[in-house]
């Protein structure tokens, strides 16, 4: 144990040059993609989710198809379709980052819509009836009775969706986005000769970075779930 040092677990590379800053920058890219996608997914998911509870069969059918298509496809395949598909077929130049935001938004919207639909339809019928019996209009019932309960059910589970989206951004390196994993690979490659243990150290750091990004969000979800337990 006498000759234990940072190099033996591959942490020395972190302090070379701007490596640590680069890694954090990479995490920033991952967070930026996921948070932008979340910002798009939540409102559009709420809208689609409400539409999915409508009586209209045609609307429901198309939403169902969209939802199933997005959920069945692995996210990586979606990324390839959008990234390569847009350049080859539609002759558009879409950057890897843009393609990622599009895919994550499509995916997040579908997941969110399903969560909203589930939360809305889990409100018991007698909540609507007792509101009606008190003379509330449909709009008043929705805003004062149904929506607050839906949000309470929805918030913890949609926060969990956010952490899932952050974690899944690790796929975007496959379409050339320089996020945290890609940065790590570059550092490992560059230091292969001098620091052969860099892989272990860097992936350990990435583990910690992801943990630090997702754990508080996860805790918040748990807290809200407890607080709003109805």
């Amino acid at each position: 144990m006498a000759d234990f040092n940072l190099a033996s677990i591959g942490l020395d590379v972190l302090f070379k040059g701007k490596n640590m800053a680069r890694l954090i920058g990479g995490l920033g890219v991952a967070l930026k993609i996921s948070l932008l996608a979340v910002a798009i997914s939540i409102p559009s998911g709420i809208l689609l989710g409400v539409l999915m509870t409508w009586e209209n069969k045609i609307v429901r059918f198309f939403l169902r198809v969209y939802l199933e298509f997005i959920r069945i496809m692995p996210q990586l395949v979606l990324l390839f379709i959008v990234f390569f598909g847009s350049t080859k077929i539609m002759k558009l130049h879409v950057s890897g980052e843009m393609a990622s935001i599009i895919v994550f938004s499509l995916w997040g919207t579908a997941e969110m819509a399903d969560l909203v639909r589930g939360a809305l339809s889990s409100i018991p019928k007698h909540q609507y009836e007792s509101a009606a019996a008190l003379g509330l209009t449909k709009t008043q019932t929705f805003f004062h009775v149904i929506l607050p309960q839906t949000i309470r059910r929805l918030l913890p589970i949609s926060i969990n969706l956010i952490t899932r989206m952050i974690k899944t951004t690790s796929l975007v390196l496959m379409i050339g986005v320089i996020e945290v994993l890609k940065v790590a690979q570059q550092i490992i490659e560059a230091n292969r000769a001098k620091s052969p243990n860099a892989a272990f150290g860097l992936y350990l750091v990435i583990f910690i970075l992801y943990f630090l990004a997702c754990w508080p969000i996860s805790m918040l979800a748990k807290y809200l779930e407890k607080k709003w337990k109805v």
Partner: peptide
């Protein structure tokens, strides 16, 4: 209808209070 319903109160079998 909502005007008339205000004049007719109803209590149900299920506990129908608004939980939030």
């Amino acid at each position: 209808l909502t005007d008339i319903r205000q004049k007719i109160g109803m209590v149900f079998q299920s506990y129908d209070l608004f939980p939030h």
